[in-house]
């Protein structure tokens, strides 16, 4: 039998929100609805789009698998991967010193941490396609502009996360080395970076995946890679070739994600 004296002391299942909290929730809902309105959300268009989408699919299938087209797209895909890999590797390498300056309490004073973090925030705020446009202006059309765009985008991503990883690394080994009289740089090189290495590897693999995804669209603005084929396909209403490009990108990106997951497990293993 239930002890009524005990149940009387039970807390209520749901707390009544305070007036301020209620106002906050209401404001949140209003902002979301306002955003839908700003984005031109239309139920009519949602309802009418499936037939148009079906029409596109009808015109796009079967994809263009002519050997000549496949060979051309294959080479462009290879160039896309080269842009992604070269850009990601340069970005990851440059991210390490940048992250050392961005990480609080490591080698740089707080004001430098703030400046570098703000710089990294700016890099991330600018989309990769915009960086590609900037580099096309700076170095001309072609894959080199794309590689630079990927490199700078990777620095924005890895610089921030490497810094966070080092700040969150186990402080024990660092303290033990500091206690031997080691310099800050030695402590960072011998204790902080090795402690953060599993997280570095994981972040680098994500950055490479991201670079591959980004590199597939850089061609839209003339920065090399398979993106230009996609643009030309749509511009000329050559939907079968555009569909081949889309499927090729999907296969490559999904494969890279699997490969990255496998590498993450092999390299980091149970250390994560």
């Amino acid at each position: 039998m239930t002890d009524t004296s005990l149940t009387a002391g039970l807390p209520t299942r749901y707390e009544r929100p305070s007036a301020l909290a209620f106002l906050g929730y209401a404001l949140g809902v209003v902002i979301i609805l306002w955003s839908f309105a700003g984005a031109g959300f239309s139920i009519d268009k949602v309802i009418s789009s499936p037939p148009r989408f079906a029409d596109f699919l009808d015109r796009a299938f079967p994809p263009n698998v002519e050997p000549k087209v496949l060979a051309r797209l294959g080479w462009k895909m290879l160039e896309t991967l080269q842009i992604a890999l070269a850009g990601a590797v340069i970005g990851i390498i440059l991210s390490v010193p940048v992250a050392l300056l961005a990480a609080r309490g490591l080698i740089a004073p707080t004001w430098i941490n703030q400046i570098v973090r703000t710089g990294l925030g700016f890099i991330r705020a600018v989309p990769d396609i915009a960086w590609a446009l900037v580099f096309v202006v700076a170095v001309g059309l072609g894959p080199f502009a794309g590689m630079l765009a990927i490199a700078i985008d990777t620095i924005g991503f890895c610089g921030r996360f490497f810094a966070d990883d080092m700040e969150a690394a186990d402080k024990g080994p660092s303290e033990s080395l500091t206690a031997t009289g080691a310099r800050k740089l030695d402590v960072v090189a011998c204790a902080t970076i090795p402690a953060a290495m599993p997280a570095f590897i994981s972040t680098s693999l994500f950055a490479t995946e991201k670079a591959v995804r980004s590199s597939t669209i850089l061609g839209l603005v003339g920065a090399g890679g398979i993106g230009i084929e996609l643009k030309v396909g749509f511009d000329l209403f050559d939907y079968p070739t555009a569909m081949t490009v889309i499927l090729m990108i999907a296969v490559v990106v999904i494969s890279i994600e699997y490969l990255s997951g496998w590498a993450r497990t092999k390299i980091i293993g149970e250390q994560r």
């Binding site: 024990g172 080994p173 303290e175 033990s176 080395l177 206690a179 031997t180 009289g181 080691a182 310099r183 030695d186 402590v187 011998c190 204790a191 090795p194 402690a195 290495m197 250390q271």
Partner: peptide, 26 residues
């Protein structure tokens, strides 16, 4: 000076010899 902590605080991914060599960094 030398410090031995509650937790050994070795750098896990490095070899035992490297960990001891690093004791000379000071």
């Amino acid at each position: 000076m030398g410090l031995v902590s509650q937790k050994h605080n070795l750098v896990p991914r490095l070899s035992v010899l490297s960990n001891v060599v690093q004791g000379l960094l000071g």
